[in-house]
């Protein structure tokens, strides 16, 4: 039987520190492959968020800056303006990008800054112990919605497509890491988003549905099933802006 597993690219310099079955690690590997294949590691500066997602710093050999939690929209703007020849990319949490940093995320998009945001939607704040985020689903139990999210008490959940659909930006897509076909789509979207920046087309955002088995209280396999059976049904998937 041939071993069909691919060797990790050199940018993945050591084992990661995520929990088993964490979606962040899958995304990082995808991004690492794309940066390697496009041969742009030396031209890339990743703006980190603060959250579980930021643990890419430990395992990826790429230049990183770390502004405060959520402020990536602002930091990326400055990165691209002072070094237009470098790629300005962020790996963001959904809490970071859509709650505490929503103003900065949307402002960067409305200016159509030539930057790229990858937002990891795991439907909660993972690092701080699984509290509700803007993306927490109605009915979902979290550490701060112990009886489940309700419209009355917590408001409706957030969908970035509704906010950005009519903006003049280069690329907007949603994918997941729930199965091999989705992983392929994610890789394709990651590449396309970075190509938009390369071609000076403007702002791109890819939201990736990722599992957090630890805070969801699910086994890794069941966490992937939740994405397929619940989240990918609830959300509009795929590319909705591609200029």
């Amino acid at each position: 039987m041939s071993n069909r597993s691919k060797k990790a690219p050199k940018i993945m310099k050591c084992e990661n520190k995520f929990c088993a079955g964490c979606g962040h690690s899958l995304f990082d590997r995808i991004l690492g492959e794309v940066l390697t294949e496009m041969n742009i590691i030396g031209e890339t500066i990743v703006c980190s968020d603060i959250g579980c997602n930021h643990m890419f710093q430990y395992s990826m050999a790429v230049d990183v800056i770390v502004p405060p939690h959520g402020k990536m929209g602002a930091a990326l703007t400055a990165q691209k303006r002072v070094r237009p020849d470098k790629y300005a990319i962020t790996i963001a949490g959904d809490g970071g990008a859509y709650a505490i940093g929503l103003a900065e995320t949307v402002a960067a998009a409305t200016r159509n800054e030539n930057v790229t945001m990858f937002v990891m939607n795991n439907t909660l704040y993972a690092m701080t112990g699984g509290q509700a985020a803007p993306t927490t689903q109605l009915g979902q139990i979290s550490a701060s919605t112990p009886k489940g999210r309700t419209e009355k008490d917590h408001g409706l959940d957030f969908d970035v497509f509704n906010v950005m659909r009519n903006l003049d930006i280069a690329y907007l897509a949603r994918t997941s890491v729930a199965n091999p076909s989705e992983i392929r789509k994610t890789k394709n979207a990651v590449k396309k988003a970075i190509e938009k920046q390369r071609d000076n087309k403007g702002f791109s955002l890819v939201e990736v549905l990722v599992p957090c088995p630890t805070n969801w209280g699910l086994k890794p396999v069941d966490a992937m099933k939740r994405i397929e059976n619940e989240l990918m049904v609830r959300y509009e998937m795929g590319e909705i802006i591609d200029k």
Partner: peptide, 9 residues
């Protein structure tokens, strides 16, 4: 807030 973090970057 945005401005100070732009300066950081």
């Amino acid at each position: 807030i945005a401005s100070v973090n732009m300066v950081f970057a």
